[in-house]
Amino acid sequence: MRGHSFLIGQYQAGNSWLHRTPYLVKLLGMAAVGALCYLLPLLWPPGWLPVLLLLAGLVACYPLAGLSWRSLMGSLKLLWPVLVFLAGYQFWSKGWTEGWPVAVNLVAVLLSCVYAAGLLSLSTPVQEVLDGLAALVRPLRPLGVDDEKFALTVSIMFRSIPYLLGSYADVHDAAKARGLERSIRAHVLPTVIATVGLAQSTGEALAARGLGD
C-alpha cells in the first residue's frame, strides 16, 4: 500500500514562528480566516479584492514559516478541477461581466480555507493536534463528553483517511492495468472491501484493549 498525502499536507518539522505557536492559537486563526472570508466582502467591496489579499497573505506565510512550495502546489494540483468547475459555472450562468468577480471570490475563498488549514496541519505534530482537541472538549466533561475517546476517534480518522485514499489509488492503478479504468464496479467493490477490512481490524484492536464501548 503506497502512501497518500492529505489535501492539506502532512507535518513538516521546523522551528519557525508558526511551529512555535500553540495549537489552539493556530486553530483560532484558521477559524478567523473562515470568518474573514465571509465578512470581508460585506465590509470592503468589491468582494473579491479583500479575499484575494487575504489569500496572498496566507500564501506568503508558507515561505515565512519555512514550509515547502510543494505543499502549495500539491493542494492546487488536487483542487484545480473543482476550481475550474466553480469558475466555469459562474461564467456560464452569469456571463463574463457579472461572473468573473463571483468566480474570483469563490476560488479565493476556497484556496484561503485550504491553505489556512494547511498552515495548521504542516506546522503541528499529530500528537499536539490530538492533545489540543482533547483540551478543547475537556470543559464538556460534565455533559458526559470523554475527551480521551474524542482524541482517540480523531487519531483513528487521521490514520484511516490516508489508508483509504491509498487503497483507492491502488485499486485505480490495478483497474487501469486491466483496461477497466472506466468501470465503477472495478473501483467500488475492492475499495469497499478494503474499507470494511480496516473497520473490522480497528474494531478488534480497540476491543482487545477494552476500548470497544
Rank of each mutant, 00 (worst) to 15 (best):
H4V: 02
V137L: 03
A169I: 00
A117Q: 13
G144F: 00
R159Y: 00
E128L: 05
V126N: 05
G179Q: 08
L52Q: 12
A116C: 09
Y38I: 12
A151Y: 03
L120S: 04
S93T: 15
L165A: 13
I161N: 03
W96N: 04
I184L: 15
L55T: 04
L28S: 12
Q10H: 15
E181P: 00
G95T: 05
Y11T: 11
L78M: 14
G34V: 01
A194Q: 13
F85M: 15
R70T: 06
Y62I: 01
G197L: 11
G179T: 05
L53Q: 00
T195Q: 04
A194P: 00
I8K: 02
W92L: 15
E128C: 02
A60E: 04
L120Q: 12
L140I: 08
G57S: 07
R141G: 14
G34D: 04
A151C: 08
N105D: 14
L180P: 01
G29M: 14
I193C: 00
G57M: 08
L110C: 14
G99H: 04
P139M: 11
Y168T: 10
L198Y: 11
A56C: 10
R178F: 01
A175S: 12
H19W: 05
S71F: 03
C61W: 06
C37K: 03
W48H: 15
L198N: 04
V145D: 05
N15A: 15
G9P: 05
K94A: 14
G14W: 06
V107R: 01
H172F: 14
V51G: 05
A87L: 06
A174E: 15
P45C: 11
G179I: 07
L78D: 07
L42N: 01
P41I: 04
V102F: 08
L165E: 13
G118K: 06
R141M: 09
M1V: 07
D131N: 11
Q127M: 09
L120K: 04
S155A: 15
L64N: 06
R178Y: 08
D213I: 02
G3Q: 12
P162F: 11
A208D: 10
Y168R: 15
P22G: 13
P125Q: 09
L67E: 07
P162Q: 13
Q127R: 13
A32V: 10
L119T: 05
S16I: 10
S155P: 02
V129N: 00
A169W: 07
L106G: 03
P63R: 09
P142E: 10
S160V: 00
L130S: 05
Y115V: 01
V171E: 10
L42P: 05
G47Q: 09
G57L: 14
R138K: 15
R141D: 02
G74T: 08
A65N: 07
G3C: 07
L36Q: 09
M1R: 12
L130Q: 05
S5K: 10
A31V: 03
S93I: 10
W69M: 00
L39K: 02
G212S: 15
S183Y: 07
L24S: 11
A60N: 06
L53M: 09
R185W: 06
K94G: 02
R138G: 02
L119G: 09
V171L: 09
G99K: 04
L18Q: 03
S167V: 07
S75L: 10
T153H: 02
Q127V: 08
L49C: 01
L53H: 01
T153W: 03
